[in-house]
Design a binder for these strands. Structure first.
Lengths: 212, 212
DNA sequence: GCTTGAATGCTAAATATTTCGCATTTAAAG
DNA sequence: CTTTAAATGCGAAATATTTAGCATTCAAGC
């Protein structure tokens, strides 16, 4: 079955609503690697990624970093601060130069009441993200590291606009993303290369399209 | 940080909307273990669990069953058939005697347009489910089997209304839920028992509350 | 109170994965 | 063209987890 790809919020909005939403927010720019917010912080509001990408994760008790995921431009985050009254659930930092609009809870609620299509777009985005998260959790339990790595690369090719070209990624980033060690990632990548499914470069990997 | 608990849809709805929703659906009753639908089936619509519970999962290529999760009464499922135009993503079967209301896509959309509070309840339910799924995926990567088992038991105590009493569950069910072998589950449970954190019975486990 | 199938406990061997350490390769900076 | 820090490759030991098989315990039904 086709994997479910998450749908970013912004392209789902009409131009009017999109402009109103961004205008209602306070836009900040972050440089690569810069902290956006920390797990546990309390300001409720919706954050929207205008350009760039945001990496989410937690530092475990042992100090190791666990990456939860990366959201691309067009996505929003912080829904749980609005709908579940919880503080930010993850540490967030910018992945590349990144601009983010922050909409306060009152302004968000005003917009939601005003434009019913906004709620619909949120429902679509949240639903696709939920089912993607469920699929990722399934894969963690059912698939070998090798299969998970291949799937991650396919996802990146799909969402990142890297189609036809090499994916710029380090092996250690794959390890972070999948919760594996760098050694396991290296082994699996070499196995995939031997199978003719990928091509390995320095800080980049190319998928070799095989029609099965 | 407090774990995020998913919020079922029904209690979030006003009585009016809840009644209208259930009335708009076709209610079916399933006996324990009975198939509700299969992965890949195509009827778009929202399903609501009126009583009982539903178990979701996939049979992997090797034939092994991977349980994705269990939803309690009050929850809905099938959102992806409405908002992402995908077929049912999981095999679903009844966990105990279960009644389910199925609302067709047109009727669902009519209700959504008619009652704005309905969209809001859906947003809350989906958001809490998304963040719970993210947390479960994090735990799969970061926690030991022992820690994951303890967390699962705490979740069950919270959601299942089993507080103060023993949780009726088989070790093999824990293994299915967490993607572990029965042997690992048994070992971890014994370790937890020795630590004085749980009490083991036949087909039941009791959490021993420790205020840290 | 027996019988019986299901559930649990336990052990050993086989696999999978991580950790650690170091060598080698790469590309960017001087 | 060198130098250098980062990225990758690789081997061995340590750990973790599964698989397989069998013994034991439990409670439901006779």
């Amino acid at each position: 079955m086709e994997p479910i790809y998450n749908q970013p919020l912004l392209p789902l909005l009409s131009e009017n609503v999109r402009d109103a939403l961004i205008a209602a927010g306070r836009t900040m720019t972050y440089s690569d690697g810069q902290f956006i917010h920390q797990r546990g912080e309390g300001s409720p509001g919706l954050s929207i990624i205008l350009t760039g990408r945001v990496r989410f994760g937690i530092y475990s008790e042992t100090g190791a970093y666990i990456q939860t995921g990366i959201l691309d431009a067009g996505h929003c985050f912080g829904e749980a601060t609005l709908f579940a009254d919880t503080p930010r659930a993850y540490d967030a930092d910018a992945f590349g130069e990144t601009r983010i609009a922050d909409i306060s809870k009152p302004r968000f609620e005003a917009l939601l009441k005003q434009a019913p299509s906004f709620a619909n777009a949120l429902l679509v985005s949240l639903t696709t993200r939920l089912y993607e998260a469920l699929e990722i959790a399934d894969d963690l339990r059912a698939l070998s590291p090798e299969a998970r790595i291949l799937k991650l690369l396919q996802r990146l090719t799909h969402s990142g606009g890297f189609s036809e070209t090499a994916i710029p990624i380090r092996q250690i980033d794959i390890a972070y993303a999948l919760g594996l060690s760098r050694v396991s990632v290296g082994k699996a990548l070499n196995a995939l290369r031997r199978q003719g499914r990928i091509q390995l470069g320095y800080k980049e990997i190319s998928l070799i399209n095989v029609r099965p």
